[in-house]
Amino acid sequence: MVVLSKIYTKTGDKGETALGNGDRVAKHSLRVSAYGTVDETNATIGLARLHATGDVDAALARISNDLFDLGADLCTPDRENDATAPYPRLRMIEGQVLRLEAEIDVMNAKLTPLRSFILPGGTALAAQMHLCRTVCRRAERLTVELSGVEDVNPDAVKYLNRLSDWFFVAGRIANNDGADDVLWVPGLTR
């Protein structure tokens, strides 16, 4: 359990931070950038929830919690040492990815197929979902880049990939099941 009794510690004043395993790294390290962008994605969810209700709000709350799990996963390297750690490592699991896929399938069944790309916009919630999607894609790119140089839980990458798709489909749902989607018209302003 986390106990936060003092918010500032001054331990990062020289540009370093502690990872979940206690290692100190530069705040600009790729690992910190990856889980920091996951945190940024989570902040965009907080804004989206200002416009969400019912099932969508509940799903965003679940996803927000998942993103803290993902941050914990990414901030703790050395997957091969998980079994000998002094406490259980929190790792993303396939079930979290499968849940997103199932939710995407349910939402997508309500939508007509697209004949054009979508521009961000429509309802306030849809616009916010597109912001969530693009920040999530950046988190995914950074996590994939990190996986090229360090061990990363493959389910963490899969989760981010599905989550950006989830935001896209949820944005269409937020646009009155796609009726208010703002469609790209190629060359419209030439």
Rank of each mutant, 00 (worst) to 15 (best):
V2P: 13
S5P: 05
T9S: 07
G12P: 05
G15Q: 03
G20S: 06
N21P: 13
D23E: 12
R24M: 08
V25N: 08
A26C: 15
K27F: 10
S29W: 00
L30H: 00
L30T: 00
L30R: 02
Y35M: 10
T37Y: 00
E40Q: 12
N42C: 13
A43V: 06
I45P: 00
A48S: 04
T53V: 02
T53F: 05
G54V: 03
D55T: 09
D55W: 15
D55C: 09
V56R: 02
A58G: 08
A58S: 13
L60S: 01
L67H: 14
G71Q: 10
D73E: 13
C75F: 12
T76C: 11
P77I: 14
D78W: 01
N81S: 13
D82Y: 06
A83N: 15
T84Y: 13
P88W: 00
L90G: 03
M92S: 05
V97A: 09
L98S: 11
E101T: 04
E101Y: 05
A102Q: 15
E103Q: 04
E103K: 00
N108D: 06
K110S: 14
K110I: 11
T112V: 12
P113R: 01
P113T: 11
P120Y: 02
P120R: 14
G121E: 07
G122W: 02
T123D: 11
M129R: 01
M129C: 11
H130S: 07
T134Y: 06
A139V: 08
L142D: 15
T143A: 12
V144E: 04
V144G: 15
E145T: 11
E145C: 15
G148L: 13
V149K: 08
E150Q: 06
E150L: 11
D151V: 15
D151F: 01
V152T: 12
V152Y: 01
N153K: 02
N153L: 11
P154V: 10
D155K: 13
Y159A: 04
L160T: 04
R162D: 12
L163S: 03
L163Y: 10
L163A: 07
W166M: 04
W166L: 08
F167W: 15
F167P: 04
F168C: 10
A170S: 08
A170V: 05
R172N: 04
R172S: 14
N175M: 13
D180L: 02
D181C: 07
D181G: 01
V182W: 01
V185T: 08
P186A: 05
P186E: 15
G187I: 13
L188D: 09
T189V: 09
T189D: 11
